[in-house]
């Protein structure tokens, strides 16, 4: 069985976020109050905060995860690490290198059936950008090279995970070739997982985790992202079903026309596998 490697400080896991920073990401995301770029950056910052939280112990933070955030389109034709100082960062170094920490309020269960207000610190590692075109191939090439190095150095680790959040078609070639190259790599625990989330600009019904091309609209772009997405390992199918998502066994790690709810679910399910394997 794959996707069962225990994650520990000596056997960490790699998660790469790819964020579309093209001009059209400035449009509002249906279901939310803000632009696609803002909702995407908020969702990814929140997830990194969740990784930090999971890895935090009384004596500090344990490097169970190494994280990269690759932006593309911040300047036309450009892609690169959003985080300063290289593409991959151990979670402990991220915890101490936020852009800023914001105070936010949440309602939490009080342990005796009620709720109470609590203030917590929300780490921000990057701000939204919506500026240029969509050089997705350049971003995937960086991901491929990073995964190649990673899998050579961590041959028995939980397979790397790539989470690509975009609202447009690649403007620099065919990205499917690059994901095929990523799928040709592996650790002893399996092949890297590539997740693609297409953010919508209109309130059309989203298509979450389709299993067959026939479920997609007649859209070349949708078919391309579908083929670029991993077939979900059975564990992930289970996580989606726990969230009451109607999903088939051969579902792909892909959401077409995602609104805010699907974006949040997508990142949650996409990162549950390695979090469940923490030693």
């Amino acid at each position: 069985m794959s996707y069962e490697a225990e994650i520990s400080r000596t056997n960490p896991s790699l998660v790469l976020f790819l964020i579309d920073q093209s001009k059209s990401m400035s449009h509002k995301l249906p279901g939310g109050e803000r632009s696609k770029a803002q909702e995407a950056s908020d969702a990814v910052n929140r997830q990194i905060g969740e990784f930090v939280l999971r890895c935090t112990k009384s004596d500090g933070i344990r490097d169970y995860f190494h994280i990269g955030i690759i932006g593309y389109g911040y300047v036309t034709g450009k892609a690169g690490s959003i985080l300063k100082g290289g593409t991959v960062h151990p979670i402990s170094s991220l915890a101490s290198s936020t852009l800023r920490v914001e105070k936010r309020q949440i309602k939490v269960a009080d342990g005796s059936g009620g709720t109470t207000d609590a203030e917590y610190d929300f780490g921000v590692w990057f701000d939204p950008v919506a500026n240029g075109d969509t050089p997705m191939c350049k971003a995937l090439a960086i991901a491929r090279d990073t995964i190649k190095d990673w899998t050579e150095q961590h041959s028995s680790s939980y397979p790397p995970i790539v989470i690509n959040i975009t609202d447009g078609q690649a403007t620099d070639g065919d990205p499917a070739k690059l994901t095929t190259e990523i799928f040709n790599m592996k650790t002893a625990d399996g092949v890297p997982l590539v997740w693609n989330c297409h953010l919508s600009s209109n309130p059309a019904v989203p298509i979450s985790f389709p299993a067959f091309e026939s479920e997609l609209p007649d859209d070349k772009y949708a078919r391309s992202l579908f083929t670029m997405s991993s077939e979900l390992p059975s564990q992930y199918v289970g996580y989606a079903r726990e969230m009451q998502i109607d999903i088939k066994d051969a579902a792909r790690a892909y959401v077409f026309n995602a609104q805010l709810e699907q974006l949040v679910q997508f990142i949650d399910i996409g990162t549950r596998g390695p979090q469940g394997q923490m030693q």
Binding site: V52, L53, A95, G111, A118
Partner: peptide, 12 residues
Amino acid sequence: LPWFQKNKAMLG
């Protein structure tokens, strides 16, 4: 406590 340890400890 640094911010992330405080977040975690607040969960109990």
